[in-house]
Design a protein around this nucleic acid. Sequence first.
DNA 1: CACTCCCGCCAATTA
DNA 2: TAATTGGCGGGAGTG
Length: 898
Amino acid sequence: ENIFDRSRMAPKTPIKNEPIDLSKQKVCTPERNPITPVKIIDRPQPDPWTPTANLKILVSAASPDMRDREKKKELFRPIENSEQSDTPDSLQYDIVDDSTVDEFEKQRPSRKQKSLGLLCQKFLARYPNYPLSTEKTTISLDEVASVLGVERRRIYDIVNVLESLHLVSRVAKNQYCWHGRHNLSQTLKMLQEAGELQYGELMTSQHKEQDLEYKFGEQKRETIPDSQDRPLLDFSEPDCSSASANSRKDKSLRIMSQKFVMLFLVSKTKIVTLDIAAKILIEETQDTVDHSKFKTKVRRLYDIANVLTSLGLIKKVHVTEERGRKPAFKWIGPVEFPEKTDELRGHSPTSDPLPGTQRGACVQYQTSATGKQRFTRHASFNSAQPCEATRRRVSSEPNSPHQEKQASIVNSDENCSKMINLAAVCRQKIEEDTGNKACDTETILNSAKNSNITLPLSLLPVSGDSDFCVNPLPQAVFPVVQADVPSFSLPIGISSQASHPSTPAASKTENGKPTLVPNQPFLCFPSSSLFMLCGGLQENNSSELLPTAGDLGNGNAEAQAAVPPTVCQKRSSHKCSSPSAPVDDEEPAPKKQTLEHSFLPLSFVVPKEPSESSKAESSPGSGCSAAVHLEMDRFDLTSPAAPEAANKESIKPLDCQEQEKPSENKDPDEPPPGNEHISKENANQPFQPQYLYVQPTAGLSSFNFLFSANQAPGAISLAANQMPSLSVPCVMVPSAALASFPVVCSPSFTSPLSPAPDGSFSAAASTNFSVSSLASTTPVLISTTAVVTPKVSPAPPVDPQQPPHPALHLSPVLTRSCSAVKLDSPVCMGHPVTLLKLQQPSSAPLTPKSIRPAHHEAFFKTPGSLGDPVAWKKNEGNQTRNASSVQRRLEISSTSPD
DNA sequence: CACTCCCGCCAATTA
DNA sequence: TAATTGGCGGGAGTG
């Protein structure tokens, strides 16, 4: 990532390798020449010999293979050169690290060194992410190929994918124009819209969604068959629109790339397994899909995925399903697209700092619907046929040998059929498994379930989270665990913290889960608004708190597992089943506590009313957390660019908080940044939950945030201090209300959540809350809208890390959080707060600060996001979504309680 | 052995 | 017709 940044930042372009340059120059210069210049020439010249080159040569001599092709040699050289000379950068660096390659080995470039992903990074390093509008950067394929030392064919692979995202455009033969990421958000937005149309519809209505999912699931399962049906669609090839043709182009890597991206954008979980993607993308649809075809598709997807990974839009993860692990990719790019991506850089106020963005996010959904065609040529997606098409594909694939895929899908199906069932299943699993994985997976599932509805795509289980974490990237850090537990939204962050096993996990875990909770964590909100607490990290810290809570919290790491499990297990079923978490409601206290413990993470408190405020969303308290996340997301969106976020994340894997911080937002309040780390570090320590407290006044009219930094406390202090343990990282208070509200955070709450919380947490918290402000419901948590589902999404961790993009939609976040919350405590259920609303509505002005929140959100989101996302999408699909989802949740919540 | 995915043949397109 | 694009899938590298 660093590298990327660098490259971006840096000089615009090229430059790069000296040696290369030389050679290039020739080529390069041609900028205009449309024609290709000469590959030949280039090749021949291998001039730039570097020391390494010599080695290589020797090596090559040694190996016949090498010898054979001069080309290769040449290629290599360049590469090497580039590596060495150039930027050794990170890219290589990274690579190197990974492989550890090294020097020696250079000789024979390992396969990794020749990977498309690496190649793509090198390619991207040559151009500025955000080139000045004025200058047009032309790309000569030949030049690039020679510089990078690869065959042109490979460059096509990269360029085609980049072209699908409009990062480049073809101007002439051998000539491409580099646009950079300026339009990336727009492109993604369009894709999202298109994706919703095609795939999304499914989601649109819940029912539909379910159905769709259902279908998907079936399809997947079946695999097979025929495909029969298929009526659907074809959208697959939009372009084709013309369809006609189709010829080759239809199958084009470009289209596949766009569709692949769409799947991510539509997916609630933001995770797409290769097999599912392959099935869906098999345009043909026809069933046929032979196995071979499937394999081919997968190969292509790997190619695309490598490029997207280099762009920082997705990352490799593994989804654990019943069957086992499946390779999958998680979207880490921006989820929402404000109008412009640029935001990152600077939005002008106009854009609305936060609100706007956030809002934008929210809005997006709506918008999405509208747009479509943007894609232009390549993009042409068929809008039509969305659902069906998807299904077909799925079905079509049928053959699918890979049942696994199906399996995952299956889950989804189930979900579709009934989330509840799924939930139940999950729970069961969870319980059974209790084990970590299980938990994770389940969680994921749950989330998925929840989300399921939304998209089939989302199918992927979260479980992978851990895997996610795995990612080399920073993300890995936290997320991992947490992710799993989406439910815990908070946890996520926490979990990450937790992850530190070292931490007192024990303490957290079991101990006193409750303890902490009780004490601290509270938030009082005045009316309306919601608060979010994120705590993540701290859990560890919380340990203190924890004792009660601590257990949980700390445990996080383990916790995460634990948590989920706990939560999941216990509640999971409950939760899972309905997003609403009614279950929780049922047993409020105890369960909650328990759950909470498990959770750990964050809790949100929402005022009772909030929902109202929130409006539709509000409904379910569950949403609270989710809501928060959402907000966060929004913020994220606003400010950060995905990439950035990513970076940040990477950098700090920390928790959400950290992430948040990075984000701009952090309002002043955020002081904590450091804290965050600390918190983590401290895990044990009491903590500091990072909080941000945003004063209402501050501008965020709508929100108040507390961030981990303990500091927040001030405001919050009440609780916070007490809460010490709380991990709550953040509290967000949306709505205007906030202003009015005092927020109280209890640090603990996270912890509380998790563990035992209930009592402690929930109880305490809830109580507090309830008492304090919320009385109404108890519920501590509020979820915003969607939250509903949220429940669980495990993903969280990831998100956090990646805050940037992760952003899922609010929904996801919310959901998660919500879910988490809900899960945790019944309390949550209580009100659904809608974060979103808060923000939006009240918000008057969001300030930049809000942005931060976003980060926070991200955190939260992550966890929850998975599940939610779907919901969101759905929602999005229709504006209704808000309402609907919200409503649902509300209903659920209400019901559930019932 | 499964997962990745490099490599490059060769067909479709384009100039 | 030659060159450019790019689908495709064998099979090798990696773990």
